[in-house]
Amino acid sequence: MTRSQGHIACAALVGITLACEAERPPPLLADRDAAPVADAQAPTTDGSLETEGFRPDGQWLLYMQDRYCLYAAGQSTDFLVWVWYLVDLSPLGPGATRDQLYLRQRMKMCAEEQSPVVGGLQTFVPAAIPANLPERTVDAFALGREPGDAWISQELVELWGLSEEVGVDEPLPESPDDPRVVDQDGDGEPGVTLTIGNNFCDVRIVQRTRYRLSGELVSGHRIEGALWSEVDKNILSATLPFCAASSQLEPRPDGSRVVVQRVDGKNGGVNLDADNNGAVDCAEILAGRERLVSSGVISQDRPDPVRCR
């Protein structure tokens, strides 16, 4: 081997060994926790922060906007009912696959609001009514934990001024003397008392509302879906005959919707725990309503004057 051949051989050896040095790979995968945190700096459309997948625990707001066409006094009016529930959500167990979940929803109505109807008169639901309604336990089923996965809830039935024994298909009592009628709001009158207008009149009713809810996960802290409801109501008495006039409700499912929004500040949900005591209550839900609506977390339609004509 000549000297030049030796140099070539040595250079080849050095080249080979240098080419073989392993270099540490760069980070190949983003931190699973870090990415959402970075995104969390920018609020999403629901005003909260981006998070991981659906976590079935904690306190949630269930918000329903129920829409009808109300026929009364010869007029048809676009009629909206907004109902606010506080929901304690917990997992019951897995479904057929490990991503599916049975959920337990303990639901407490916090408030119901109604849009004005004939003549601009608005029905007010006194706070005593939701305050005296029992907590409802309604189970649900989630087909997964990722956005797009379905959520289906059992039927929620609310009884106003009625004993709990009243069945879902049973005709409602028409007389205040019916033993199934109870003074639920504690005002000394049978049934519940609604105030119409600015103390224009009071009307005492019994009412049964059945809600069927379904939707899909849109993020780890939010479910959006559709709402079907059926309202049965009997007027027991009214302080003015006008207020006792019968009316008819025609559901408008296309304007009805349900939003289930995490509100305990965990997993990226909004935080309505104003007193920082670790739990959200109905007072905090009601105090946070404006903020939720103004930030777009909850959207509240206004009555459309031409919608039901």
Binding site: T17, E21, A22, E23, R24, P25, P26, P27, L28, L29, A30, D31, R32, D33, A34
Partner: peptide, 14 residues
């Protein structure tokens, strides 16, 4: 022996 196996950094959350 001058061989080496170099590991990529582990991401958090796994």
């Amino acid at each position: 022996d001058r061989t080496a196996i170099l590991l990529a950094p582990r991401p958090a959350g796994y």
